Simulated assay, not measured.
Amino acid sequence: MVEKNIVEVDKNDSKTNINDRGAELIKGVKSGISIAIGYIPIAITFGLVAKSSGIPNMVSILMSLLIFAGASQFIGVNLMAHGATGLEIVMTTFILNFRHFLMSSSLTQKIYDKTTKKLLSVLAFGITDETFAVASLCSEERISPWFMLGLNFIAFISWNFGTWIGIFLGDAIPSSLKTSMNIALYAMFIGLLLPAIKESKPVFVVTFIAIFINCLLKWIPLFSFISMGWSIIISTVVAAAIGAVLYPKEVE
């Protein structure tokens, strides 16, 4: 009789645990709806830019499925369109997305301790700037990994959905309009950069240094052997190093 009661209690605990997971998953999806709405038009733009750059549809789709990093995908498409080597593309996107290591490390301090490493690996893949911001601003001291999974899931689905739409539209719109979509890449980066430049002097200085170094590498004949991909890598690393020296502490 006692054993039967224990089994019933275990079943009830299991059901409660599953219900809690489902509730947290749904809560995460709801919290990510605003992110999803913002991702779709950007992902559509990515699909259009990739199409206009001559990138095969399957490559564009796999980039959104396996990379899932907007800025890296845009810069990757641009580098591929200019004939950059695989190493240049990998190095550039690695530097661009290095912050994800920091974001993942930070969130592990906020997620429940008993979360398995396999689940943490899945969560780390889905972290973006926006999902990190939402999770970090949660009022709870600890957040459920299932909440994070729901948050990442809705962002991932919306990004891939938008990519498919962009690729589909790329087949329907005139070639002249597709070609003009290449400017969307630069417009997006300028749109992301200007607010940060206005609010932060260090960002302005480091950005100017990176632009200056890249111009030198492009226009001085001595450096003509350096490809565009390596120019971006060198400019980014050198500008970041100078910024670290000039601004060793976070500016209040």
Rank of each mutant, 00 (worst) to 15 (best):
K110A: 03
M80E: 07
L123Y: 02
N97F: 03
L119C: 01
L102P: 04
H82N: 15
F98H: 09
L102W: 14
S72E: 09
V77A: 14
A71E: 08
G76I: 07
K117W: 10
L87D: 09
I95K: 01
D113L: 09
V77H: 07
F125H: 05
G83E: 01
L87K: 11
G83V: 08
Q109S: 05
I89G: 05
F101Y: 14
S106H: 08
I75A: 06
D113R: 11
N78Q: 12
T93L: 10
N78I: 07
K118F: 15
N97A: 04
N97P: 01
A124H: 03
A71P: 10
Q73E: 15
M103S: 02
T92I: 00
I95S: 02
Q73N: 11
K118I: 10
I75K: 00
F94V: 10
L107S: 03
G76P: 11
M103F: 15
L119S: 03
M80A: 13
T85R: 09
F125A: 05
Q73W: 07
L123Q: 00
F98Y: 15
Q73S: 08
I75C: 06
G86T: 12
L120W: 03
V90W: 13
V122Y: 13
A81I: 02
S105Q: 04
L120T: 01
G83F: 13
T92E: 00
T108I: 03
K114V: 03
S105G: 15
V122P: 00
L79C: 08
S105Y: 02
T93Q: 11
V90K: 02
Q73G: 09
G126P: 02
I75F: 06
T116E: 07
F74H: 10
I95P: 00
H100V: 02
L123A: 01
A71K: 09
F74G: 06
N97W: 00
S72C: 13
S106P: 06
Q109E: 03
K110M: 05
T116G: 14
V90L: 14
Q73L: 10
D113G: 14
T116L: 03
S106T: 14
I75Q: 01
Y112L: 11
S105M: 07
N78R: 09
F94C: 11
V122E: 01
L79E: 04
Q73T: 06
T115W: 04
T85L: 14
K114G: 03
A84M: 07
M103Y: 15
K117N: 15
N78L: 08
F101D: 04
L123H: 00
I111A: 06
S105W: 00
M80C: 08
N78V: 09
L120H: 01
S106A: 14
E88D: 12
K110S: 04
G76T: 13
T85Y: 13
D113H: 12
I111W: 02
T92Q: 00
F101K: 01
H100P: 02
T85G: 15
K117A: 13
F101R: 02
K114L: 01
L79K: 06
T93A: 08
A124L: 05
